[in-house]
Design a protein around this nucleic acid. Structure first.
Lengths: 165, 165
DNA sequence: CCGACGTTGTTAAAATTTAAATAACTCTCC
DNA sequence: GGAGAGTTATTTAAATTTTAACAACGTCGG
């Protein structure tokens, strides 16, 4: 009846354990810090700010809901709520997608653009102060590589094209 | 009336921009992944699991609320709610602190310990699969260094001893 | 001792996030 | 053409997190 293979799990080495601890501390502290900074200076959490940035970079400052959700790595449901809130602030508006009647575009209003331009310098400064002004260029490179490897593992390219694997 | 110094903000370089994007993707995907893994296999989010781990490593499997909150990098308020929930599961219990009548200890019950032992292998496997089995030992070292630097910036040692700075 | 001030932990209310269900639509295959 | 399967976005309810306020205790100086 034993359906457990009873393999001794491979625990983390001391180095790995230590790195994992560091990672958890750093990421939760940073997330927290940026959330507070943006809540204070822009009246929204970091995730919401990220949505505005995405929109601002998109052609005609608009994007399909699903695409936006994927880029921001959040669920469509969460995005729906978030956009609803940003609409209340007047920073984002919705419109029907011309080509797909199921679809919606979210677009950044002029007001939203202005708010973003006002908030961006402070946010960049916070990110700089927390990371890029503290790391050597080599470390920045390492960080990017490491994160790329992690992302690959968590979101194998072609994850949405399972028949290709 | 201009109280803004009107300094051109130092934007991120392309490398920094790229690294930042990678960082955000990787960290949100990992957080998400581990939350789901633990919700599925242990019926709780990652933060809660971390609390049980902390308690399991503490002497006599108990710890003061504030200390636990600090180690887990969460607010005391959030911890209160979390412990309340874990108490309902029977995994944690509270007790008055003998030496300070304001204080409370949270301690891990036997039942909680068993659940932790049951959940740990799967969680370690998930962490390995996402990170440590994908990174070289050098990269693990780099990650730890980078995160240490970040943590220093966000939580300068002596932050709770401001008179020493 | 007393009072001011800081600490510890909780609570209530509001905001956000997640999970599950649903409505509306598109696409493919017969 | 139309049934069935998948997609898109939203909604509802439950869970979690945040914010602000609070009660109770400890500490320190006068």
């Amino acid at each position: 009846m034993s359906n457990e293979p009873a393999v001794e799990p491979r625990w983390l080495s001391d180095e790995e354990q230590f790195a994992w601890q560091c990672y958890l501390h750093a990421t939760t502290l940073l997330e927290d810090h940026l959330d507070r900074q943006l809540q204070r200076d822009a009246g929204m959490p970091h995730v919401y700010y990220g949505l505005l940035v995405q929109l601002s970079r998109a052609p005609r400052r608009r994007m399909r809901m699903t695409e936006l959700a994927q880029n921001a790595k959040i669920t469509r449901s969460r995005l729906s709520h978030a956009i609803a809130r940003l609409e209340k602030n007047g920073w984002v508006r919705r419109e029907n997608c011309p080509s797909d009647k199921r679809g919606q575009n979210a677009y950044l209003t002029d007001e939203g653009m202005r708010m973003l331009e006002k908030a961006a310098p402070g946010h960049v400064a916070a990110v700089r102060a927390a990371i890029f002004d503290r790391l050597s260029p080599e470390q920045v490179g390492h960080l990017a590589e490491i994160c790329q490897v992690m992302t690959e593992g968590l979101q194998p390219q072609g994850a949405d094209l399972p028949w290709l694997r």
